[in-house]
Simulated scan of single mutants.
Amino acid sequence: MRVRRVITTRQGGASGAPYESFNLGDHVGDDPAAVRANRGRLAEGIGLTPDRLVWMEQVHGRTVGVVKGPVADPVEATDALVTTEPGLALVALVADCVPVLLGDAEAGVIAAVHAGRVGARVGVIPATLAAMREQGAEPSRIEALLGPSVCGECYEVPAAMQADVEKHLPGSACKTRSGTPGLDLRAGLWQQLADAGVGRIGLDPRCTVEEQTLFSHRRQAPTGRLAAVVWMEQ
Rank of each mutant, 00 (worst) to 15 (best):
R2G: 01
V6S: 05
T8A: 11
T8K: 12
G12N: 11
G13R: 01
A17W: 12
P18I: 13
P18Q: 09
Y19P: 05
F22N: 03
F22Y: 14
F22M: 05
N23T: 07
L24R: 09
L24A: 05
D26W: 08
H27G: 00
V28A: 06
G29N: 06
A34R: 13
R36F: 05
A37T: 15
R39Y: 01
R41S: 14
L42I: 09
E44Q: 14
L48K: 04
R52T: 00
R52L: 10
R52A: 12
L53A: 04
V54N: 05
V54L: 08
W55A: 08
W55F: 15
W55S: 03
M56C: 10
M56H: 10
E57W: 11
V59R: 15
H60D: 15
K68C: 05
G69A: 11
G69C: 04
V71G: 06
D73Q: 14
T78H: 06
T78R: 13
L81W: 11
V82H: 12
T83A: 11
T83Y: 10
T83S: 15
T84E: 13
T84K: 13
P86G: 09
P86M: 04
G87P: 07
G87A: 03
L88A: 06
V91D: 10
V94W: 11
A95N: 15
C97H: 11
V98C: 09
V98S: 05
V100I: 14
G103I: 03
G103C: 03
G103D: 05
A107D: 07
A107K: 01
G108M: 04
G108C: 06
V109C: 05
V109F: 04
A111I: 02
V113S: 07
R117P: 00
V118N: 09
G119I: 01
L129Y: 03
M132E: 03
E134F: 00
E138Q: 13
E138C: 01
E138A: 13
P139C: 05
R141T: 10
E143A: 14
E143S: 12
L145P: 01
P148M: 10
S149F: 02
G152Q: 08
G152V: 08
C154R: 14
Y155Q: 07
E156Q: 14
V157S: 06
L169C: 06
L169T: 03
G171N: 06
S172E: 01
A173L: 04
C174F: 01
K175T: 13
T176C: 06
S178T: 15
S178K: 13
G182Q: 08
L185A: 10
L185S: 07
A187R: 15
A187L: 09
L193F: 10
D195G: 12
A196W: 07
G197M: 10
V198S: 05
G199D: 06
R200S: 12
I201S: 02
G202P: 00
D204H: 01
D204A: 01
T208R: 11
V209M: 07
Q212P: 00
H217D: 11
R218H: 14
R218D: 12
Q220H: 14
G224D: 02
R225K: 14
A228H: 07
V229F: 02
